Computed example of a mutant assay.
Amino acid sequence: MTSTVNAPLDFGIFGPDSVTWKVYRCPTSMTVGFTRTALTEMFDPLVVASVAGTGSLRERAADRYDRTLEYAGALVLADSATAAHAADTLMRIHTRITGRDPVTGQAYDPNDPAGQLWIHLTQWQSVLHVYERFGPGRLSAEDDRQYWGECAIAAQFQTIDPADVPRSRAEMRAYYQRVLPDLVVSETAVEHAHLILNGANLALTELPGPLRVVSPLVQWLLRRATIATLPRWMRTAIGSRQGPIVDAGVTAVLRPIMRLAARQPKMLAKKLESSSPRAYAVLAPAILDVSPTTPETVSVQEAFRRAGRLLPREQYLTLATDSGTPAT
């Protein structure tokens, strides 16, 4: 039985007329999109070191996937108060996580702007890439410009310098070229990539009743679909030899399934409730078009002002100044 969905306070930062809602409400985003995001993030040595240090993926991959989806969904689809609270809470948690990457020898800080930028951009690029491959198709030129503009707005929920955020696909490609030499294919990165690929969303593929017998097939399909979106070097890193024929096959099968699911929001919400209960609480109002108490969008700055908190980058710079640590 589906839980009661509470009306949000407002439309959040972007609202139903945004390209962000258009892309993120698609079931491609909540499935292959976030699996690809989480997997790709693991090749930044400091990001994977901080994740490995907590042991969260090794011990509870599905729970971490649910929490990550909850957080990302809160920022783009939930009301402004929920979004600001989620970003502020995660930043406070990150301030307590420190350590040293055994591969590079560098100290890691989950709030570091460079790492935050990598996480933010891999998410927005991955979600869009999967949306266009398995969902409705390529964005129009106008929607594409708006999407990357909204990506820059969303970056304010993190410690990122707004000047570093790409404003187009071309700038996004240039960013990837710049950071590629710094990515590391370590044993830890590969291990965590496999943990995500094989176990992050198992609950999502469990079908009810007699259909349960084909659940492994659904899991195989989503796994292969995720690999189909990866660049060649990343496939090699995880030991996959999947080629263009399988890529084309899973795309042909999954695309109509995703388009059908997009036309069944109640079914999508119900599945999300059983597979990712934490994410369901913040995503369901947007998926089901539940009207907010006040039908307005709110800027990130206003959301934090109402919460009585500085923006994350302002908090980060203040903490760096107080500790005498150079800020980036």
Score class of each variant (00 low, 15 high):
residue 295 P to M: 14
residue 119 I to C: 08
residue 104 T to A: 11
residue 41 E to N: 14
residue 265 P to M: 00
residue 301 Q to Y: 12
residue 31 T to D: 00
residue 139 L to S: 01
residue 233 W to R: 14
residue 163 A to I: 08
residue 75 L to W: 03
residue 93 I to M: 12
residue 15 G to E: 04
residue 140 S to F: 07
residue 132 E to P: 12
residue 107 A to W: 12
residue 130 V to Q: 03
residue 154 A to G: 10
residue 302 E to K: 12
residue 188 T to E: 15
residue 91 M to P: 00
residue 63 D to L: 09
residue 328 T to G: 07
residue 154 A to C: 15
residue 191 E to T: 07
residue 237 A to R: 02
residue 188 T to D: 13
residue 269 A to S: 11
residue 21 W to V: 05
residue 8 P to T: 06
residue 244 P to S: 14
residue 234 M to T: 03
residue 8 P to L: 08
residue 138 R to S: 11
residue 216 P to A: 12
residue 328 T to I: 07
residue 133 R to D: 00
residue 251 T to S: 03
residue 294 T to Q: 14
residue 240 S to N: 08
residue 31 T to Y: 05
residue 11 F to E: 09
residue 200 A to M: 00
residue 126 S to N: 06
residue 62 A to D: 02
residue 21 W to E: 11
residue 102 P to F: 11
residue 80 S to C: 09
residue 247 D to N: 14
residue 38 A to V: 03
residue 245 I to R: 14
residue 151 C to I: 15
residue 186 S to K: 02
residue 311 L to M: 11
residue 257 I to P: 01
residue 103 V to M: 13
residue 303 A to D: 10
residue 181 P to C: 13
residue 307 A to K: 09
residue 106 Q to I: 09
residue 211 L to D: 09
residue 99 G to P: 09
residue 147 Y to E: 12
residue 60 R to G: 07
residue 313 R to E: 12
residue 42 M to K: 09
residue 162 P to K: 09
residue 167 R to A: 15
residue 141 A to Y: 04
residue 89 T to H: 10
residue 328 T to A: 06
residue 207 L to W: 11
residue 214 V to E: 02
residue 17 D to S: 05
residue 317 L to Q: 12
residue 232 R to Q: 13
residue 198 N to C: 04
residue 126 S to K: 03
residue 1 M to V: 12
residue 207 L to C: 10
residue 326 P to C: 10
residue 138 R to I: 07
residue 232 R to Y: 10
residue 171 E to L: 14
residue 150 E to V: 09
residue 196 I to T: 10
residue 179 V to M: 13
residue 17 D to I: 02
residue 242 Q to E: 15
residue 188 T to R: 07
residue 215 S to C: 03
residue 279 A to W: 02
residue 54 T to V: 12
residue 17 D to M: 06
residue 77 L to W: 06
residue 156 Q to A: 13
residue 266 K to N: 15
residue 25 R to I: 07
residue 300 V to W: 09
residue 127 V to I: 11
residue 246 V to S: 01
residue 43 F to C: 15
residue 183 L to D: 04
residue 23 V to E: 13
residue 16 P to F: 03
residue 81 A to N: 12
residue 134 F to M: 02
residue 227 I to S: 04
residue 56 S to H: 06
residue 16 P to H: 06
residue 51 V to S: 01
residue 1 M to W: 04
residue 244 P to F: 13
residue 108 Y to M: 15
residue 158 Q to P: 05
